[in-house]
Amino acid sequence: MEYQYPIDYTWSTAEIVDVIHFFECIEKAYEKGIDRDELLAAYRRFKEIVPGKAEEKTIFNQFEEASGYASYQAVREIRHSRAGDRIKVSAQKKKLR
């Protein structure tokens, strides 16, 4: 990994760890696939830390700019899947840097 995760330093250590875990789940969704329920749980925790849509969008954009992974695409796949499904975001949906 050659990039930094978008972090708000007003978050607690536990919140930072949970946000990093969420972005690691996004990476898994692109690289090898991830269980839908694992990604959903990580996203729900992320939304507890970042409840506002505007702030979420800003953080997603920062992460995409740094990594090339579009968090929105992975989260959208949650809505189009069912419990127990495996989510694999296609490389075509990854933004090329």
Results as ranks from 00 to 15, higher is better:
R97T: 10
Y3S: 10
Q73W: 06
E15N: 15
A54L: 09
S67G: 06
R79V: 01
A83E: 14
Y9Q: 13
L39Y: 09
R79C: 02
Y72I: 13
E15F: 04
S12R: 12
E65H: 05
M1I: 09
S81I: 04
A29P: 03
A14H: 10
E48G: 02
T13W: 04
R44K: 09
Q73H: 09
I49A: 12
K47M: 11
W11R: 14
L96C: 01
F60S: 03
S71R: 02
D37G: 03
K93C: 04
Y3D: 03
G68C: 06
V75E: 01
E38R: 03
A83W: 01
R76C: 07
F46D: 05
T10K: 15
Q92I: 14
Y5I: 14
T13F: 15
T13V: 15
E48T: 12
W11E: 14
E77P: 00
R45T: 15
R82A: 08
K28W: 10
A70G: 01
I78D: 00
K57D: 05
K28I: 01
R44D: 07
P6F: 04
E55D: 12
A91H: 07
A42M: 09
I16V: 15
G84C: 05
I49R: 11
Y69A: 07
F22M: 12
E27H: 10
R86E: 14
V19P: 02
A66E: 09
E55I: 06
A91L: 08
R76H: 07
Q73F: 10
I78P: 04
E65N: 07
R79L: 04
F23E: 00
R86I: 13
D85G: 11
Q62G: 05
L39T: 11
S71I: 04
K28M: 13
V17F: 07
T13P: 04
E65F: 03
S71A: 15
S81V: 04
F22H: 13
A41E: 14
R76T: 03
E15S: 15
E31Q: 12
V89K: 09
K53L: 11
F22T: 13
A70Y: 01
S12N: 07
I34P: 09
V75S: 03
A91E: 15
I16T: 15
A83P: 12
N61G: 05
E55N: 07
W11S: 14
S67Q: 05
R86A: 10
Y5C: 06
N61S: 11
S81H: 07
M1A: 14
K47F: 00
R79F: 08
R82N: 11
E77N: 07
S90D: 15
V19N: 02
R44C: 01
K28Q: 15
Y72M: 09
V17T: 11
R76V: 01
G68L: 02
R76I: 02
Q62N: 11
S81C: 10
H21N: 15
Y43A: 02
I7C: 13
A14R: 11
K53W: 05
Q62V: 00
E77Y: 08
P51L: 10
Y30D: 06
S71H: 03
V75D: 02
V50C: 08
N61M: 03
G52M: 06
R97W: 05
I49G: 06
E65A: 14
I49Y: 08
R97N: 13
L96S: 09
C25P: 00
